[in-house]
Write a protein that binds this DNA or RNA. Sequence first.
DNA 1: GAAAATGATTTTAATTATTAAATACAAATT
DNA 2: AATTTGTATTTAATAATTAAAATCATTTTC
Lengths: 300, 300
Amino acid sequence: MARTDDRFRSAYNKLLDICTNMEVGGQLPAEVVLAERMEVSRTIVRSALHKLDAENLILWEGRRKTLVKRPDKRHRLSQSESLPTGEELEKRFLEWILRFDVPAGTSLNIAQLSRQFGVPAHSLQAFLSGLSRFGLVERRAKGGWILSGFTAEFAVELSDFRLVLEMNAVRHLLSLPEDHQIWGKLKEIRKEHEDLRRDLKDRYHDFSTLDEKFHTTINSVVKNRFVVEAQKLISLIFHYHYMWDKRDEQERNAAAIEEHLDWIDAVLAQDRAGSEEAVLNHLRRSKETLLASLKNHKLG
Amino acid sequence: MARTDDRFRSAYNKLLDICTNMEVGGQLPAEVVLAERMEVSRTIVRSALHKLDAENLILWEGRRKTLVKRPDKRHRLSQSESLPTGEELEKRFLEWILRFDVPAGTSLNIAQLSRQFGVPAHSLQAFLSGLSRFGLVERRAKGGWILSGFTAEFAVELSDFRLVLEMNAVRHLLSLPEDHQIWGKLKEIRKEHEDLRRDLKDRYHDFSTLDEKFHTTINSVVKNRFVVEAQKLISLIFHYHYMWDKRDEQERNAAAIEEHLDWIDAVLAQDRAGSEEAVLNHLRRSKETLLASLKNHKLG
DNA sequence: GAAAATGATTTTAATTATTAAATACAAATT
DNA sequence: AATTTGTATTTAATAATTAAAATCATTTTC
């Protein structure tokens, strides 16, 4: 067999819905109209109509499509569940690498991984060749893929790259006019940090989310597809590391909150040198945490 | 048929070479040894030996592989020419977009493009999904690809990104010790600029190469896979634009040479503010040139 | 009898063939 | 004349197929 008929099945079921909302004896609209309403090509509409006709639910003569009988549950076609999206796949793949400490140099088995992640092999391959741009995987000459890996080196380079991007974002930020909405947002986030600091003992798990929100907000002032794309990867990796490295979580988060607050204050005060200092300070520590967690992970 | 037997054919020819360098009546080495020497799996070695046996070039009994006759040209298998590499494909694809001004929003026909570029459809798809990370193409929900395009917006964002990266490189550069090899290289490049300036009338076409060399040198101080990857794309696109936009080439190049010299001098003088100014100045003009060339291209 | 080499089998992945779906075009009906 | 339907063509997703690699078991040789 070739491609799946998922598209046909879901279209057919939609058509049953349309029939259910009609009087027996009524006329179905024209093929083009149905195609447009169902967001599908006329070819599919026609095959679905053929099936309706064959099931004696409609009488189809030329352009007359008369409803003979209201369809019921028995007529519905079962659907295979929808595939995970690209982002879903990305998450699962990184989760797999980080969670099981897949070592650098591991050769990736497309067939097995595609089964494991429940995606067609061919779409996994497309995904990997996307990742290869970021140097996380490599294509071997002989064929096949290897995980060039989540090494300490990778982490250092990723962190350094992050520093370049976020420093740039902060410099942009400082040049924005006073009435820009970013200032209000930053003040809100500042308050959220203070709230969390107050209840840290009970809520220190919430920091991961707040951290992501903070960095996303800072970076949102840079409207640039390359920066945005790179930051997606960065935040994904840092986020997952936060999730699995639970040692000293409360202390680490307490320190990070203070660093964020210094950062926000310096920016709000339009203090250029102070801001850059705060960025450096926070990201340097963040990098060290990432590296330390990598090492411990490997040992454990 | 399934996959090609290119690998087998080239291995077989290599094996013929090995036989040619042997005495008739001599023994071929063990399969594992051959496999290692030919950088190929034992499976291929065995099929090649089978063929040698069938052609009566060797007598193969168990682990005795006796050379019966020296092979000659007639025995060689013809090979299909090797496919374009990934980089080759990248170049051709960008060339196609820029050269024919393929407009943004064009839907890409995989089958046709793969014929045009002479690569298997499936490897083109892998390539496109790599490019989609940079937002040059997009995958449609229904399937298929669209060129989200080499628009003015894309050019602006690419230029801005370039500015961030090169500014970062220059800051790194200024922190390097006096005995670092980069200083010698920069002095050499400075001289090349002066030489070219002197003979500009006759040699102004040479600037494109020198430009690439200059920027590559500057960026070489940043050892970071993300930066390196991004710069590949940047230099490719700027390079191609230089190639096709020939208006005022000599004047533009003369101006650019002066900007480069200012840049180099400021850096050599360890003048931080002056260097940043020079970078800004050159890259701003470069961006404007790129934009202007885009607009003119569209009109012409 | 241990090491090395070969033979057979299983697993993996590149490519082609096949089929679903989309698109384009021609004919027919209102 | 404007829709609507019927037919043919094109495109692309997936499964089947086959080359190549990897693994395991057996045999040979020293």
